[in-house]
Simulated assay, not measured.
Amino acid sequence: MAISTYSELQAAISDWMARSDVSGSAADFITLGEARLNRLLEVVATTASLTGVSSSNVVSIASLSMVEPVSLYVTSDGTEKFIPPSALGTFFEQDTPNIPSNWAIEGTSIRFDCPLDIPYPIRFTYQGRFALSDAAPTNEFLTNNPDLYLAASIVWGCTYTKDGAISMWKSMLDEFVSEVRSINAQKKRSQLRTDPMLQRRGYNYATDVTS
């Protein structure tokens, strides 16, 4: 079974717990599992599927746990078009409805440079907290670490059903979190290494000049 989306994760929880009666509570297990992941791990790249509003230049993102926006794409005539971001107040806003050319974040909304002429499908990517939903059905972490996401959720499922398997899932969760934190630390160390071409080849402390 693939576990790459919010709905697939909910189905997997019921499947791995072998309990059809928890399907209605799977979303709660995921939310509680994400609460712990948010405390232990860094922000995650997330993709949200939004829909624009005809004759409006604003789309609400209040339901998203966004930390920082990344990119935005609008689908027109079956083709996805990249819309470049701009700082709020740096682009001219038109009154005529059209496909947008610029966007910026304004509070809990995306603001375009013009009203939309039709309700365009929008793909919005951002760095955010762990918070899967129907509006944001997947994120980079779920794609790369479905085992950890499943374990974090099932720990709460076992708590809810008083299942003795909780110790096994808790052990796997702790192991997976430790592995991911170690990988992230290695990536950070790699990113912090100075490019050899930028390093100073010699330094004379007496004259304070590069040799």
Rank of each mutant, 00 (worst) to 15 (best):
M1C: 08
I3R: 06
T5Y: 03
I13E: 01
I13Q: 00
I13V: 06
D15F: 08
A18K: 09
S20T: 07
G24R: 06
S25K: 12
I30C: 05
I30A: 01
E34L: 00
A35P: 00
V43P: 02
A45L: 15
T46E: 04
A48N: 01
G52E: 01
V53R: 04
S55H: 13
S55T: 14
V58M: 11
S60Y: 15
S60C: 13
A62F: 06
S63H: 06
M66K: 04
V67W: 11
P69Y: 12
V70F: 14
T75F: 06
T75E: 08
F82S: 08
F82H: 13
S86G: 07
A87Y: 12
L88W: 14
G89W: 13
G89S: 15
N98S: 12
S101Y: 03
W103I: 03
W103Q: 00
I105S: 01
E106H: 15
G107P: 05
T108F: 13
T108Y: 13
R111C: 01
F112A: 00
C114D: 03
I118L: 15
P119Y: 01
Y120G: 01
Y126V: 00
A131K: 03
L132N: 02
S133G: 13
D134F: 14
A135C: 06
P137T: 03
T138V: 07
E140A: 07
L142C: 08
N144P: 06
N145F: 12
N145M: 05
D147A: 14
Y149W: 11
A151H: 08
S153T: 06
V155D: 00
W156M: 05
W156K: 05
G157Q: 04
G157I: 02
T161V: 06
K162H: 09
D163M: 01
M168C: 02
F176P: 00
R181Y: 12
A185R: 07
K187F: 15
T194E: 08
P196D: 11
R201C: 02
G202N: 08
N204L: 14
N204T: 15
N204V: 15
A206K: 11
D208E: 15
T210Y: 11
